[in-house]
Computed example of a mutant assay.
Amino acid sequence: MNTATSTFLDLLAVALVFFLLALPSLVGHLNDRRIDRQLARAEKGLPAVRVRAGAGGQRAAGVVQRSVVAQRAGAL
Rank of each mutant, 00 (worst) to 15 (best):
T7D: 12
G45S: 05
R33P: 08
D32A: 15
R50T: 15
V63I: 11
L39G: 00
R34I: 13
E43K: 14
L30H: 09
F19H: 00
S67W: 01
G28T: 07
G28P: 03
R72L: 15
T5N: 06
L16S: 10
L12V: 05
V64Y: 09
A42P: 03
N31D: 13
V64M: 03
L16R: 09
A53I: 00
A42C: 05
V17N: 09
A55F: 09
H29C: 06
A22T: 01
A75H: 15
A42M: 14
Q71P: 08
T3H: 05
R37T: 10
V68T: 06
R41C: 15
L39M: 00
A61T: 12
L76E: 12
L39K: 14
Q65Y: 13
A53S: 10
M1R: 10
G28V: 03
A13R: 02
A42Y: 14
Q71D: 01
G57L: 01
V64T: 01
V69T: 11
V27G: 00
R72K: 11
V63S: 00
M1P: 15
T5A: 02
V51G: 08
P24W: 09
A4N: 04
H29M: 14
V14N: 02
S25Q: 06
Q38N: 00
P24D: 04
I35G: 07
V64W: 01
N2C: 06
H29P: 04
R37H: 06
P47W: 07
L21M: 00
L9V: 10
R72I: 05
V17D: 05
T5C: 07
A75K: 05
R37S: 12
G28A: 09
G62W: 01
K44F: 12
R66Q: 15
F19G: 04
L9S: 11
P24A: 10
A48E: 01
F8C: 14
V68W: 02
L26S: 08
Q58Y: 10
G45F: 01
G54E: 11
A48G: 12
